[in-house]
C-alpha cells in the first residue's frame, strides 16, 4: 500500500542551492547592511569608529524589542499598532513613580530595576487591553490595537501635561557605560532579543505562534488553545513595548509622552518586520530577518544624518527602502511558484 507523495526537488542541485541563497531575504539584507556601512564610511571615515558603532547599537536597541514584539504578533496573523504609545505611557508613568526614589538618592540599580518592573507591568496592561478587545469582543487586531494606541497616547499626555517627567542624569551616565561599543543597556536588550528568537523558532510556544498565523482553524482543530495563545502574544508585545519605554527613560533620564508616538515607532517596527521577510497575512517570518531589518533601518536613518543629508530626504529614503523590500518579497514568492 503506497499512497506515494512525491515531493519534487528533494535532490537539491548546487545551481539551485546558489539561487536559493541569493534570493534569500536574510542574505540579501545582510549584503545590503554591509554595503550601507561601507557606503557611509566612504563618505565620512569617522563612521568606522567604536563610538559610532556604539550609537548604532543603542539606536538598534530602541527599535529591536518592539520590532520583535511585532514579529510575534504578525507571525500569529495579527498586527499591533499600540507598541509606540505603550512605550510612551509606560515611560512617563514609571518616571513619575521612581522620581521620589531618585530624589532620595536611592541606589541607581534599585531605581532602574523598579522602573523596569513598572514599565513591564504597564505594558502588560496595555497588551491585555488589546487582547481583551480581540478575544472577548472580537475586534480585528487593527482596530483593537488602534484603540489601545489612542488610549495610551492620550493617557501619556494627560499624565505628563506634555512636559518631560522626571530628571535622572545618573541614568544617562549609566546608559553610556559598558565595554567597547556595547553598553550594559544594549547588552541586556540583545540578550533579551536572542531569548525571543530562541523561543520563536525552537519552542512549542513559537511553533503554536506560526501554526495559528498560518491557519487558525487548523491550529484550533489540532487542540491548540488559540485564544489563550493570542492573549499571551499581545501581552508579550505590550511588555516589550513597556521595556522599550524604560529603555528611552534610561537613555534620556526622563520620560516623554511623545516617545514612540510622534515618530510612528509602531510603523517603523512593522517596517522592520516586513523588510525582514515576514508576511502580513501571518504564518511567515523569521527572527533573523527582523533583526537585519531593524539593523538596516537603524543604519540608514543614522547614517544619513551622519553624512549630513537634509532631514526631509531621510524619510523619502526610508520609504523607498520599504518599497524595495516589499518588491523583493513578491518577486521571491513568484519565483518560488515557478520552480
Amino acid at each position: 500500500m503506497s499512497t506515494s507523495v512525491d515531493v519534487s526537488g528533494s535532490e537539491v542541485t548546487t545551481d539551485r542551492r546558489l539561487r536559493r541563497v541569493v534570493t534569500n531575504q536574510q542574505f540579501v539584507l545582510f549584503v545590503v547592511l554591509i554595503a550601507l556601512i561601507l557606503f557611509f564610511a566612504s563618505r565620512n571615515s569617522l563612521f568606522f569608529r567604536v563610538g559610532e558603532f556604539s550609537n548604532l547599537f543603542t539606536d538598534f536597541s530602541g527599535l529591536v524589542l518592539i520590532a520583535l514584539a511585532e514579529t510575534y504578533v504578525i507571525v500569529a496573523g495579527g498586527i499591533d499598532l499600540a507598541v509606540g504609545s505603550t512605550a510612551a505611557v509606560s515611560g512617563v508613568v514609571a518616571a513619575g513613580w521612581i522620581q521620589p526614589l531618585v530624589n532620595h538618592g536611592v541606589n541607581q540599580a534599585v531605581v532602574l530595576l523598579v522602573g523596569t518592573l513598572a514599565c513591564a507591568f504597564i505594558g502588560a496592561l496595555a497588551g491585555g487591553l488589546s487582547a481583551l478587545l480581540i478575544t472577548a469582543f472580537d475586534l480585528v487586531p487593527f482596530v483593537a490595537t488602534l484603540v489601545t494606541y489612542s488610549v495610551g497616547a492620550g493617557l501619556a499626555l494627560v499624565i505628563s501635561h506634555g512636559a518631560p517627567v522626571g530628571y535622572n542624569p545618573g541614568a544617562i551616565y549609566w546608559s553610556a557605560s559598558g565595554i567597547g561599543m556595547i553598553t550594559w543597556l544594549v547588552a541586556i536588550v540583545l540578550v533579551l532579543a536572542v531569548v525571543l528568537g530562541v523561543v520563536l523558532h525552537l519552542t512549542v510556544y513559537g511553533r503554536y505562534n506560526f501554526a495559528i498565523g498560518s491557519n487558525e482553524f487548523a491550529a484550533r482543530a489540532a487542540g491548540i488553545a488559540v485564544r489563550r495563545h493570542l492573549i499571551s502574544v499581545y501581552v508579550l508585545a505590550g511588555v516589550l513595548a513597556g521595556l522599550t519605554g524604560m529603555f528611552f527613560y534610561i537613555r534620556s533620564g526622563s520620560g516623554a509622552a511623545t516617545t514612540g508616538v510622534t515618530n510612528s515607532a509602531n510603523l517603523v517596527a512593522i517596517a522592520a518586520v516586513v523588510i525582514g521577510g515576514a508576511s502580513l497575512t501571518g504564518g511567515v517570518g523569521r527572527w533573523a530577518g527582523t533583526m537585519l531589518g531593524a539593523a538596516v533601518l537603524t543604519v540608514v536613518s543614522d547614517g544619513l544624518i551622519f553624512i549630513n543629508v537634509p532631514p526631509t530626504w531621510i524619510q523619502v529614503v526610508v520609504g523607498a527602502l520599504i518599497a524595495v523590500a516589499a518588491l523583493l518579497q513578491s518577486f521571491r514568492r513568484r519565483s518560488r511558484r515557478v520552480t
Binding site: L46, F47, G51, I305
Partner: peptide, 24 residues
C-alpha cells in the same frame, strides 16, 4: 551650521540625531 535635526517633539529622537552629529 549642519543640517537641522528634526526631533518630532521627541527627546529621544533628538538625542539619537545629536549623537550622530557629535560622532560625525
Amino acid at each position: 551650521m549642519l543640517n537641522d535635526v528634526v526631533s518630532q517633539s521627541q527627546p529621544s529622537v533628538a538625542q539619537s540625531a545629536f549623537a550622530q552629529d557629535i560622532s560625525a
